[in-house]
Amino acid sequence: MAVRARRGVFRLSRAAVTVAVIAIVVIAFLLPYLWILSSSFKDQSTIFSDVSPLSWKTFWPTEGSLANYFSTIETKNVGRAMLNSVIIAVLQVIFTLVLGSLAAFGLTRIKFRGSGLLFGLILVTFLVPMEALVVPLYAWMGDLHLRNSLVAVFLPWIASPFALFMLRQAFEEIPTELDEAAYIDGAGPFRVFWSVILPSVRSTVVGCGLVVFLFSWNSFLWPLVVNSSSAQQVIQVAVAQSAAPGQLPNWGETFAGAMIATLPLILIFLFAQRHIVQGLASSGLK
């Protein structure tokens, strides 16, 4: 009896802890989003007057309207920018995965002298801050006549050390017996890569692709710098907050723009979450 009672208390306190943790997580992670979401429906004059003193009005637009969304979409060419971002992100993901998985296969399956050193040299580029690379890379893209195109936005980043690192981990987890058997059956290395190895790391490939998509979608400085024409503008640049000194920023539109730029990612990740977790798990990080 006593034991059962203690268990009951234990369970109750565990439940309490669980509820408390969930509450903290929701407050810390969700409230900021709720605020920005509700603000995006408010007009300029109520956004900040609702916040102080803190009340439920902060998180709920009492006289909400879609005006900010309409004006943002109308004045900032959001449709075009969204399409550009999708094209760039999809192409970046495809090329990154193709180059990365081929290289990972080469580094893990076909041992050659200095492959470890080579991998180290590749990883070094991961350590260079992108903001620092913008100046020389911009000049270089000019020499290559690659500026002012959608291609220019993603091409410099498709040889991604991050993707290679992730994929290499996964490739190493696959037992070599698998490909040895295929070689005995007379398959060439490319066939082994395509029919044996790739299918067994599918979830890592998908997870890696999603992370690359995320990086690509959220990049700002490079697409801004390398392309001049509005025809090639990406969504993050299109919705960036922008007021000259002596002018007044329109916060409602800024928040509406932020929601427009973020929502597609949230939706994708809501549906693809399973793949990310699986992908990272099967990449053999432990």
Binding site: V98, L99, G100, L102, A103, F105, G106, L107, R109, I110, L118, I122, T125, V128, L133, L137, L155, P156, W157, I158, A159, P161, L164, P189, F193
Partner: peptide, 14 residues
């Protein structure tokens, strides 16, 4: 040969 395309892009753009 499998690493070459990756390396090529890495050299040119990084």
């Amino acid at each position: 040969a499998f690493v070459t395309p990756f390396l090529l892009f890495l050299i040119v753009f990084q």
